[in-house]
Structure formats: C-alpha cells, structure tokens
Design a protein around this nucleic acid. Structure first.
Lengths: 142, 142
DNA sequence: TCTCAATTTGTAACGATTACAAATTGATAT
DNA sequence: ATATCAATTTGTAATCGTTACAAATTGAGA
C-alpha cells in the first residue's frame, strides 16, 4: 500500500500533472538543495518541452501548499528543499556545498517574540565544512 | 574620550573616507536593516555625487573586515546590519518588516557539525508580527 | 607641487526572477 | 467520440538587484 507521488500531491490539493510529479520526485530525492537551474537542467532531457517558468511556477505551488521550502542561504539564487521538518543548513565558504544538520527545536523560549505568530524558521550556519577544514589544517601543519 | 566613527573604522583597518564614515553611521543608527537602495536614497541628498556602486563596495569592505553583516532573509534583495552580536531576525509576511530578537547562543550542542568550523550564524523566523497578528484576530472576531 | 595608489563614480553588462499572452492539456458534459 | 472550458504549460520579453570595468577623483607622502 505505497502512496504514490501523485496521491501525495493530491492529498495536498495539488493536481498531479506530469511536470509536477517529476519536479517533486527530483526535489524529494535530491540531497543537494537544488536551484531552479539545477532542477531544470536535470529534468530537461526527460521532458524536452519543459520550461524554466514551469519550474518556478511549480515550486511556488509546492511552497504555497506547504510541501517544500525556499532556502535563501545563498545570496545569488534561491535553493529548494522538500524536507519540511525543522532542520538547519550549513554552507561551506570554500566548496559552497550546503549540508543539512539535525537540531533540537528550541524555539519556544524566545521571549522577545511574545505575540508574534512564528510560521517558519530557517537556521543558517556558515563556515568551513569538515572536509575543507581538514584540508586547511593539513596545509598549516607543513 | 569618545571614539569617532573614523577611529573605529581605522581600528578595523578601513581607511575612513567621507563616504565610508557616512555609510557606517547610517547603518549603525538604523534599526531597519536597510537595503543598498535605502542607504543610497538616504545619503544621496547629503552626498550628491554618491554612487550606488560605492555603497555596494563599501558594504563589501565592512563585511570583509567584520564590522557588518549581510542578511538574506529577503529573497529579493540583501539587507545589511552593523550589529554583529548574535541575534535573530523575524520577518513579517504581511508588513514585510524585519525585527531583531535576542536569543541564547546555544550553538555548541549541534553534534552533527563535529569537525566543522562554524564562522557565522543566521537565524530567520517568518510569520506575522505582533501588530499584524493582532489586527488579523480582530477581523476574525467580527 | 608632483606622484601614485586607493577610492569613487557612471555606464554597461549580467543573471535570476517575473509578467504575460499564446499554446496545450485534461476533465466533464453532450 | 467530440466539444467545451478552465487549469496548466510554454516561450519571450521585461524587470531589477548586483557586478564588471575603466575613467575620474581624492589624498597622503615625497
């Protein structure tokens, strides 16, 4: 009794067109927080008629319906994620890769936001990832 | 024995030109996390020759030298802040205003980032600010 | 006053995103 | 099947924040 992507989209009030199913599948299976351009380039061979505008439109629908989120960790272009559960993002200054990381949800104790309705949270860390940090240390030790 | 903005810039290895002093003063006194356009428009009357490129260049220098930070809470344009101390930002979906909020620095306990060198943190919350949230409830109660 | 590097400026280019209208698709009724 | 009609997709052009770049200006030191 597996739930198809089509069913999943339907359950979120999204008509499961061919393009939408393909885009959601790609986003869900991707770990790399792809940009619109990455999604478009990846699916273009399979869907030759695909338009970049469709990718933009579709992601907007996903976000409106709450099954994806935009990540503005990069100043230049927006990245997307089908993982809605609260988690942080780390971006490496050197290799520019974006990592997920788990974290306790400790948002309740922000006194300053009494009366505010917090609907979304984004936690961005920046620095050197384990890999780049390690390589840097090796160089310093020489 | 007050420290002037010029001295402050000098102490951070930044030559205090007229434009840089003015831009830093504006940013430091501003609570609204201004965009490049806001900064430029605000200072243009005082500095008629000011170029928007200078604003971009200057902010880049400030960030490189560690006396300002870029805030990508807005997808469209980057905002800037001269407050370096760790704090969160809340953006209202309705009035689009960006609020600061204080928070405990509880970053040490992210096990997943063992080996990573965390150099910068950004915490973005989104939702309805106290003001907009309150107005919405009034409407609903009618 | 001269020199030279740093800074500032204006213009043009770039690139991600959006607006918009035409084309296509797909469900429903006939 | 076919017609209808709204939703979706598509391609093009426009928008706008940002950057590249070269010329002009500034300012400190000789």
């Amino acid at each position: 009794m597996t739930v198809t992507v089509g069913d999943f989209l339907k359950s979120h009030d999204i008509k499961p067109s061919y393009q939408r199913v393909k885009i959601y599948e790609f986003l869900k299976n991707s770990k790399e927080h792809p940009t619109v351009d990455v999604i478009y380039s990846a699916l273009s061979p399979d869907i030759p008629t695909l338009s970049k505008t469709t990718v933009y439109n579709t992601l907007k629908v996903f976000i409106d319906k709450g099954i994806a989120m935009a990540i503005t960790i990069d100043e230049r272009e927006v990245r997307f994620d089908a993982e809605i559960r609260m988690h942080g993002h780390f971006k490496c200054y050197k290799c520019h890769q974006v990592y997920d990381f788990e974290m306790a949800d400790q948002t309740a104790d922000v006194d300053a936001l009494e009366g505010f309705d917090i609907m979304e949270r984004q936690l961005f860390y920046y620095g050197l990832c384990e890999h780049c940090n390690h390589k840097l240390k090796e160089v310093e030790e020489q």
